[in-house]
Simulated assay, not measured.
Amino acid sequence: MKGAIEIDTYIYLSEKDKQITSVGFSKKEIKNHKGISGLKYYLIILYLRKHVQTFGQITLTLNDLLQEFGYSTKTNNKSIYSDFREIIKTEIINKGYASCNKDIFIIKPNDLFHLQMSYENNIFFTEDNFVQITIFEYENICSISSKINKSVLLGIYLYIKQFIMDYSGDITPAKISFPSKLQIAKGLDISVQTVESGLLVLESNKLIYIRRDMFVENKKEEGIYVPTRNVYALDPKELEGKSVLIELERIYGKRIYNKEDVPGEIRYLTKSKGE
């Protein structure tokens, strides 16, 4: 058909390749892309990485994006596409990471459009590849059945993973992270309640693992022990044993106890407003 876009042969990724094919996000990107709208940035970049064709070409529709992310496309609400159009235009096209054969703001949801990714200005690999997200991880998050926005789930996952360092050598610390829920909420510009809901979804789908019920002596009351922050890992084996306690002791400057070993009274702290 005259004027139709010719689609090149796709480079389909094997299941093995999906576990090693990734996008590197920088500290600056994590700082700049937050909030319900801004977190969609990560989904879009990972979608492009997954679907890039021979010679850096990607052919798609807006509905392709929404369907992969779990959004319903059976709606007359055109505003649902606004964030995706804006991110593709301002963060990808305007910054020279790709060129587009059509005006992204006027194409219809089912219209094919064509992105040509730049070789010189590669959006998938920044100089500061602070945290890597694989296509395997991205697909697992997109496949979750949940009312929580996939961009929020990916944002929480990415925020936790950025603190899990990949050490080399024979003796390495546990690959864990322990940001507080309030820290995650502020970092992503979402509510603590949304963080809590997202953590439960990620945990129930075995994308993250959480160790709770660890206690530290209250600074103000001797003999009173309060819960520490949660500890997160991507592999449940990392949460076993005393290594987690040792890592937390470096943070608190005090001995950390499992619940059954607490040598005093346990007291659960009441939540302050906004926490």
Rank of each mutant, 00 (worst) to 15 (best):
Q162S: 02
E120A: 10
V226Q: 09
Q57P: 00
S37P: 07
P263T: 12
D170S: 14
L188M: 15
G24L: 11
Q57D: 13
D170V: 09
D17I: 02
F125H: 11
D189Y: 06
E127M: 06
I144P: 04
T9Y: 11
Y97F: 13
Y41I: 09
V244A: 02
I251Y: 14
D64P: 02
K27R: 15
R267S: 13
I256Q: 06
K40D: 05
G70L: 03
Y159E: 02
K219F: 05
G35I: 09
T54L: 15
T73W: 03
L60Y: 00
Y257F: 11
S26V: 11
S197Y: 00
L13M: 12
F163R: 01
R267V: 14
F25W: 04
R212P: 01
I5S: 06
Y42A: 12
Y225H: 10
E127N: 13
N122F: 11
N140C: 12
E120V: 06
K18F: 13
E247G: 03
A174D: 09
N63C: 09
E203Y: 01
K95A: 09
L153F: 03
D213F: 10
E127I: 02
Y10H: 05
K89C: 09
G155D: 08
K27C: 02
I45G: 01
Q53K: 10
I20A: 11
I144K: 10
L43N: 15
G96M: 03
G198F: 08
S243H: 04
I92D: 14
N149T: 01
S151C: 10
S22A: 07
Q193Y: 00
K95D: 08
L239V: 02
Y81G: 06
N94I: 01
I30V: 02
K259D: 04
E68N: 10
P263G: 08
A4V: 07
L199Q: 04
Y71H: 13
